[in-house]
């Protein structure tokens, strides 16, 4: 039906536009966003929760086994009925796979053993086989890969973070263009909000590290203060 998707109109209209990297904080805070998302039907809320658990680093358990994470992601992909959301999730997981390969190789790790589940997407085996190649032999599929490798090798964590978030942001924005007032719009908004939030927090973390460095430098020359007994 042409008007069947209208429960989302009010919710979408209540979400402020997010301008990535141009704002210090997301235009809506987590508490208010969660309050707004309560307008979604329960089934959509559950799908959104599962999607966020896969996509958002905030909810990812870094100690979780790769195979277990991939199993969860694939189970979610099988449940998602929206082709747009499934495509967006696949793209995100593929990107994570390539970045994971870059980081592992940079850390001096050997390629994953054949048969071990470590990544997602159609190029996993090609990446493993091309471990010694600068772009793993998949540079034509991931245009951002050479720049990411360069930033990683230069130790420029901020540049790498910005590049990856910007690439992921553009991917999500491309998917969102085809939707206006539906669940996909809300879900992709949530994904982009997570990225903006991560970027804002990333800056905060960086500022904290810098502040400590400055504090240590300033206190290095200061006379010792006797401890209170």
């Amino acid at each position: 039906m042409i008007w069947a998707d209208q429960p989302y109109v009010m919710l979408v209209a209540s979400l402020p536009a997010i301008r990535f990297l141009s704002e210090k904080e997301p235009p809506i805070n987590r508490a208010r966003l969660m309050e707004r998302l309560k307008y979604l039907p329960p089934a959509d809320q559950e799908t959104l929760r599962q999607l966020t658990e896969i996509v958002s680093w905030r909810f990812i358990d870094v100690t979780e086994d790769d195979a277990a994470f991939l199993e969860r992601a694939e189970a979610l992909l099988a449940r998602i009925s929206s082709p747009t959301l499934a495509a967006a999730l696949r793209e995100r997981l593929e990107m994570r796979t390539v970045v994971a390969a870059l980081r592992r190789r940079h850390a001096g790790e050997n390629p994953p053993e054949p048969g071990v589940r470590w990544g997602f997407g159609p190029h996993v085996e090609r990446i493993r086989a091309g471990w010694s190649l600068p772009d793993f032999g998949v540079g034509t599929f991931y245009r951002w890969l050479p720049a990411a490798k360069e930033a990683l090798e230069a130790g420029d964590a901020a540049k790498l973070e910005r590049l990856l978030l910007e690439t992921a942001w553009n991917q999500q924005a491309r998917h969102a263009e085809r939707h206006a007032f539906d669940f996909e719009t809300v879900a992709l908004y949530m994904v982009r909000w997570s990225m903006a939030d991560r970027w804002a927090r990333y800056d905060a973390d960086e500022a904290e590290v810098r502040f400590r460095e400055l504090l240590d430098a300033a206190l290095a020359d200061a006379p010792d203060i006797p401890e209170v007994a």
Binding site: Q6, V9, V12, A13, S14
Partner: peptide, 16 residues
Amino acid sequence: IGVAIAGQAAIGAMLE
């Protein structure tokens, strides 16, 4: 239907 769709958007916009 048209007023209901636009009206829901108006209510959403008022929240922000």
